[in-house]
Amino acid sequence: MKRTVIILLAVSILGLAAAYFFQPDTSIDYASFQSRFATAFRRADFHAVEVASCSGDQIPFPWTLRPQRRASTRDSHIDFAVGFPDSAEHYKLVIDDSPPLDCFVRYFDSRAAFIAIRARSSQASVARALRSALAQEFPGFTITLTTNDG
């Protein structure tokens, strides 16, 4: 009985580890992402009042998402960083006369890796509407929403 439990526990741990390490790559090429992202939030009547680049360290990866370097198809040892190699963009988005929502796009290996929306608790319904609009444009893409009282 004890041995069976240990074996089941070991198999479960291996299964979880395999699921984490062999996740499909849901990242999107930055050029494609940029135009689609702007179209998605405009379609939902949001407008960017400010856009700024920021350090990728400011937007940590969710624990459920493992960043994956893409294998180079070139034979050269010289690698050119096109787009946003490992950084983030901070968008302040508004709809009507609402206070701005903070929306971050995290890039890794020159690809959009995930979107993080941060809002005050009073903006929760507006933030959910933005997340819904973005999820329609990017099905399967990681979009996190965090609300706080600040």
Rank of each mutant, 00 (worst) to 15 (best):
I13L: 15
T73R: 12
Q23G: 06
S110D: 15
F80H: 09
R74C: 07
A40G: 10
S72G: 09
M1P: 00
R42A: 13
Y107L: 03
A129D: 08
I143D: 02
Q34C: 09
S12G: 07
H47Q: 10
S32P: 02
A40E: 04
V49Q: 07
F46H: 07
D75A: 11
A127Q: 03
F84K: 05
A135V: 09
R43E: 15
A18V: 13
H77A: 15
Y20M: 12
G150C: 13
R66P: 09
D102C: 02
R111A: 04
E137G: 13
L101Q: 05
A113K: 02
E137F: 07
P67W: 03
P85L: 01
K2Q: 14
A119K: 07
I6E: 12
V94Q: 05
V82A: 10
F61R: 06
N148E: 14
D97I: 15
F141C: 14
Q123Y: 01
I7Y: 14
F138R: 08
L8C: 04
F114L: 00
L9K: 10
E50M: 08
H47D: 00
R69Q: 15
L93T: 09
A48W: 08
V49C: 05
F80P: 00
L101K: 04
S87D: 12
Y30Q: 07
D45F: 00
D86S: 13
S27T: 12
R74V: 05
A124E: 11
G140H: 03
R118Q: 14
G15M: 09
S27C: 03
R70H: 07
A40K: 07
V51I: 12
Y91R: 04
V11Y: 08
Q136Y: 04
A112F: 01
D79Q: 14
I78P: 01
H47I: 02
E89G: 01
A19P: 13
A44S: 07
Y20R: 12
D86W: 05
Q23I: 03
A133C: 11
S122A: 14
F61G: 06
I78L: 02
R128C: 06
V51R: 08
P62K: 03
S87Q: 12
P67K: 03
S125F: 02
D96G: 02
R42G: 15
S35G: 07
L9R: 09
G15V: 09
F41Q: 11
I143H: 00
L65Y: 09
S87G: 14
L134S: 01
D57F: 11
K2W: 13
K2V: 09
L8M: 11
R3K: 02
D79M: 15
R120A: 05
D29S: 09
L14H: 11
D97L: 15
P67Y: 06
L101E: 00
D57G: 07
V105Y: 09
A10F: 10
A124C: 00
R74S: 11
R118N: 12
L8V: 10
I115K: 11
A17I: 06
R3S: 06
W63V: 15
K2N: 14
L93G: 10
V51E: 14
G15K: 11
A17P: 04
I6F: 13
V82H: 11
F108S: 12
S72P: 01
D86M: 01
I7M: 14
L14N: 06
A17N: 05
G15F: 11
I117N: 06
